[in-house]
């Protein structure tokens, strides 16, 4: 049931993107996600898609593994695009029936929203596809380091994060095991209405929770037994360093962000002019 979930799964290849510093990747991902919300024109979307494809090819990931992450939010995409399509009421009316109206503006808003979501999720999934959970948690800790000044428990939070990330696959595996066991007792999770299905999940959720608490207890004891404490005296086995590749990646993404922002604010939509060249009357 959950075997095909790929969001959050590390995909090992020996690429330049994989070797980047996790902190840099984390910050660039945030930059990418923010920039996506500034895109105004189809030109901007094409540029973003191009950048994304360049990163995917550099990372030597099969495009399908990136697209798989979209599957998880397919429902949200379809739902919001239908809402957008039928209820945006500005502009030229193309089709009308009872309370449903499709307008030209509505169609464009919908297409852009779908593009935005698809690019957003694929971009974000690149981070987890190319960075191991441990690297990621270390990166977060390092980025949050200044917060120590205001007595924020950075190390504790980082440890909580690493543990949480570490246990995602374990919990998936466990969920699968419990589902298998209940199916073997004749449970069915894919028939009946919404409530019937939700109720059918109880025999899975209850043992899952019970086992998680048990596991948390055991882990706490094990850490205690090895004298774990989150003081500043703790040292790292692997120290991350910013290298040449990181600077290249940084410059690449910054120039991409600049183009998108310039397109939106300074040139007052050069992209939109380009859109007209390409799509002409469709707009």
């Amino acid at each position: 049931m959950f075997r095909d979930i790929s969001f959050g799964q590390y995909y090992p290849t020996n690429s330049l993107v994989h070797k980047l510093d996790a902190r840099v990747k984390l910050l660039l991902t945030i930059l990418f996600v923010v920039v996506i919300f500034f895109i105004k024109s189809y030109f901007g979307f094409m540029l973003t898609a191009f950048v994304l494809i360049v990163i995917i090819l550099t990372a030597r990931l099969p495009i399908i593994s990136v697209l798989k992450s979209i599957r998880g939010i397919l429902f949200i995409i379809i739902f919001t695009s239908l809402i957008n399509l039928f209820f945006v009421k500005q502009g030229e009316i193309l089709w009308h029936w009872k309370i449903f109206t499709i307008t030209k503006v509505g169609v464009h808003t919908t297409i852009k929203m779908v593009l935005r979501l698809v690019l957003l999720i694929s971009g974000a999934s690149l981070l987890s596809l190319t960075t191991t959970p441990v690297q990621l948690a270390d990166g977060v800790e390092s980025i949050m380091a200044p917060l120590k000044l205001i007595k924020f428990p950075v190390r504790d939070v980082a440890m909580i994060m690493s543990i949480a990330l570490r246990f995602i696959p374990t919990l998936f595996e466990e969920t699968n095991k419990i589902i298998a066991a209940q199916k073997a007792r004749g449970a069915s999770f894919d028939t009946g209405g919404f409530f019937a299905r939700a109720k059918a999940m109880m025999p899975v959720l209850i043992p899952l929770f019970v086992n998680s608490f048990r596991r948390a207890d055991e882990l706490a004891f094990a850490m205690d037994a090895r004298c774990y404490n989150a003081t500043d005296k703790r040292t790292k086995m692997k120290k991350a360093r910013i290298g040449f590749g990181d600077i290249v990646a940084l410059l690449f993404m910054l120039s991409f962000a600049t183009v998108i922002l310039l397109d939106r604010y300074y040139f007052a939509g050069v992209g939109i002019t380009i859109d007209y060249w390409i799509f002409g009357d469709l707009l």
């Binding site: 095991k177 419990i178 298998a180 066991a181 209940q182 073997a184 899975v204 043992p207 019970v210 086992n211």
Partner: peptide
């Protein structure tokens, strides 16, 4: 076919 999995007690609910 009845299957009793490993550690079946963790599936009680």
């Amino acid at each position: 076919v009845g299957i009793v999995f490993q550690y079946p007690e963790y599936q009680l609910f």
